[in-house]
Design a protein around this nucleic acid. Sequence first.
DNA 1: TATGAATGAGCCTTCATTCAT
DNA 2: AATGAATGAAGGCTCATTCAT
Lengths: 219, 219, 219, 219
Amino acid sequence: MSDTRRRRVPRPVREQQIIDAAIQVFAKRGYHAASVDEIAELAGISKPMVYLYLDSKEGLFIACLRREAGRLVAAFQAAAGDAHSLELRLRAGLDAFFTFVTEHRASWVVLHRQASELSPAIAAEVTQARRAVMEQVTDLVRVGIAESAAATRPHDEDADFVAHALVGAADTLTDWMERHPDESPERITLRLMNMVWVGMRNVLDGEVWTPGEAGRTGE
Amino acid sequence: MSDTRRRRVPRPVREQQIIDAAIQVFAKRGYHAASVDEIAELAGISKPMVYLYLDSKEGLFIACLRREAGRLVAAFQAAAGDAHSLELRLRAGLDAFFTFVTEHRASWVVLHRQASELSPAIAAEVTQARRAVMEQVTDLVRVGIAESAAATRPHDEDADFVAHALVGAADTLTDWMERHPDESPERITLRLMNMVWVGMRNVLDGEVWTPGEAGRTGE
Amino acid sequence: MSDTRRRRVPRPVREQQIIDAAIQVFAKRGYHAASVDEIAELAGISKPMVYLYLDSKEGLFIACLRREAGRLVAAFQAAAGDAHSLELRLRAGLDAFFTFVTEHRASWVVLHRQASELSPAIAAEVTQARRAVMEQVTDLVRVGIAESAAATRPHDEDADFVAHALVGAADTLTDWMERHPDESPERITLRLMNMVWVGMRNVLDGEVWTPGEAGRTGE
Amino acid sequence: MSDTRRRRVPRPVREQQIIDAAIQVFAKRGYHAASVDEIAELAGISKPMVYLYLDSKEGLFIACLRREAGRLVAAFQAAAGDAHSLELRLRAGLDAFFTFVTEHRASWVVLHRQASELSPAIAAEVTQARRAVMEQVTDLVRVGIAESAAATRPHDEDADFVAHALVGAADTLTDWMERHPDESPERITLRLMNMVWVGMRNVLDGEVWTPGEAGRTGE
DNA sequence: TATGAATGAGCCTTCATTCAT
DNA sequence: AATGAATGAAGGCTCATTCAT
C-alpha cells in the first residue's frame, strides 16, 4: 500500500485516492469544517497536488458527490432493472439503496447532510429540535397502536419506524411544494394521508410485506 | 417600524429582532457561511449587541432553533390536539406542518438543512445528485402509472409526489437504521414496502383521501 | 454597607469605592486583562459612573497607583522619620515596607508587577524562566554555605533568602545602569560584590542583626 | 541579509527571525499591547507564517522566553563555572549577567517585566510611583553619607546605587515572603539589614571590592 | 446622581490558494 | 510528479467608551 500511496503514482489513481480521502473527511467534518490540509494528509500527498488534480475545494467536493451519487444510482439501477413487476423492482431498488447506505456510510453522509460540520453543542440542539417534531408524530402513532384493534403487540419499534417514514416523507415533500406553489397545504396533506394511511396500519399491526400478497386489497 | 427597529429598543424586543434577522441569514447562507456581521446589519444594529444578547454565533443559532422548533411543535400540537380519531389528528397535524413550512419558509430551512451554506456551484451539484437518485424512483413510479390499469390519467405530478414521499421516507429511515443496526436492509425494505405500497396506488390513481373513506380498503 | 455602596452616595466616597474595587481587579487580572465592566460590578455601580468620576481606564489605574504609592511612602516616612541613627531609620523604614506589603497584598501587586495578566501557560513559563536564573545564584550560594566554616547548619531557607535579595538587587540595578551608561558591567559587579559580600556571610552563618551590634566591624 | 530575510527561507531560519522580531516588539510594547501583525511585519513576513511556525501568540511569547532565558542561564553558567572560590564565581556570574543585560536589552525587558505594555501615561506614572519609594530610601542613604565619617566624598551616584540595590532586594524578597508566610516583616527586615548594612558602608565610602580583600573586615 | 443601550476599532486566528523549486 | 514556503482575505469575539434617558 505504501507503494501505491507514495510517489510517482499515475494521475487517475491519485485522483481516486484523493477522492477517497476527501469523502472520509467531508463525512466526518462536513464541508466547511473539512480542511484541505487534512484531506491531503489523509491522502498521503501534499496540498498542491490536490489543487493540481481537483482544482479547488469545491471541485473536490463535487467530484466526491458525482462519484458517489453515480455509484448509488448505478446500484439502484442494477437492482431495479432486473425484475418484471413494479413492486418487485421497487423492492429491489429500495433494497439496493439501504444496502448502499449500510456499506458506504461515509458516502451517504456526504450525499445526505453536512450537519456534522456543526459543533457538538449545535448538533445536539439540532437533534433535539428535530426530535421534538418527530416526537409529536411518534406519540400520535403510538396512540394509534393502542387504538388499533389488531395491534395487540404495541411495538414501540414499529411506531418509531412509521414516524420516521412519515416525517421523512413530509420533510422531503417540502421540496416538492416549492415547485408546486399552487398546491395548498391541505391538498398535500390529503395526498400524503392517502398514500400512507392504510400502509401505516399494516406496519403497526406487525405485518411484513411479502411480494404479491400484502396490500393487494384492491386487485 | 423604523421606530422600533432603530435606537434605544428594550432588550427583549431587540433580542427577537436579532433572532428574526439571524433566521433569514442562516436560511440563506447556512450556518458556517453566515456571518455575524451580516446578521447584525440586517437587524439594524452593530455586531457587539449580538454578542451582548446572544453570547456567540452558536448561541444565536441555538436561539433560532429553539424558537422556531417551539413554534412548529406548538402549531402541530394545537392542531393535532383537537380531533378525536387518530386519522383526523394526523391529518390536522400534517396540515399544520405544511402550513407552517409554507408560511415560515426561512424558519423551516434553518430547522431542515444547512445545505444552502454551500456555494451556488455546490448547491446545484447537490440538487443534481439528489435528483439523480430521485429520478430513478420517479421513473419507476411513472412506469408504474403506465402499467396501472386504473391510472387512466398519467399525472406526472402524482408520480413526482409519490417519489418524493418515498425517497424522503427512505432517506430519513437511514437515521432509524443507525439506531437499529440489527435490522437488515432487506427487512427495512419490506417494512417500507408494506407501509406505502397500497397507498401509492391510491395516489397514482388520482384518489384524494377523504376522512374515513379513502384507503379503507381492507375494512 | 449596602447603604454606602448603593444609590446617592457623595462623589468622594464613590471615588474611593471605585478605586478600592479597581485595585482588587487590577491585582487579580493585571491592567490589560482587567475589564472596566468587572470593576464597575465589584464597585456596585454602573460603568458610566466609572468614566464620570475617573475619566478612563488609564485614569482609574493612575488613581490606584497614586493612592497606594502615597500610602506606602507615607508609611515609610512615618516609620523612618522617628529614629535618630541611619541604621535605625533604615530598619524602621524596611519594617514599614514589609508590613505594608503583607497587609495590602493587592495594592502591592498593582505597584509591583502586572505579570498576573498573562495567561496561566505564560505565567508558568515566566516563573520557570525567572527561576532558572534564580537557581543559578541559589546553587552558588548553597555551595557557599557548604564552604563556609561557620555555616554548620546549612539552612536552605537562608540560601534562598540571600539569593532572592541578590537577584532582586541585580535586577533593579539594571534600571540604574540605564541611567549610567558609562559604568561597565564589571564595575557594577564589583560595587555590588562590595555591598553584599560580607553581609551574605553573616546571613548564611545564621546571624540575625541586632541594632548597633552586628556588622559594626569597622567602627 | 535582505537575501535571508526575504522569500523562501528554510523553516529553522525563519523561526529564529520571527523570534528575533517578537522579542523587539514584546520588549517595546509588552505582551498584550504587542500585536502579531507588528511582529510579522518586523520579521518581514505575513501573519499566517507566525501561526504556522509558532502556533499562537502565547506560543510565540513562550518561545522568546525560553530562548532568552536559556541564553542568559548559559552565559551565567559559562562564566560562573570557571573560578574556584565562591566569591570569584559569584563575581563572574554577576558580571555575565550585567553584560548580558547590557548587550541584549530587549531580551532582558521581556524576561524582566512587561510593564512597558502600559501606555506612556501609565508607564510614567508607574515610574513615578516606584521612584517615590526609591527616593525615600535614597534620601535616607544620602543622609547616611553625610553622617558617615568616612564618607568624605558624598557621591550621589553611590547613594543611588545602594538605594537601587536595597529597593530591588526588598522588592524581590516580597516573593520570598509569599513562600514563607510565617516569617514576620520584622525578622525579614533584620535579615536584610544584616546582609547589607556593612556592605552599604563600604560602597558609600567609595570602596571598590577587590577579590579576597575588600569587605574582609572581620578577618 | 445614575444607567440601559449601543458602537468603532482592533486583535487573534484560520483557511483556501499559489509560488518557486 | 511533487512539495515546502508563503499569503490575502475574512471571521468571531472583546473592550473601552459614549449616548439618551
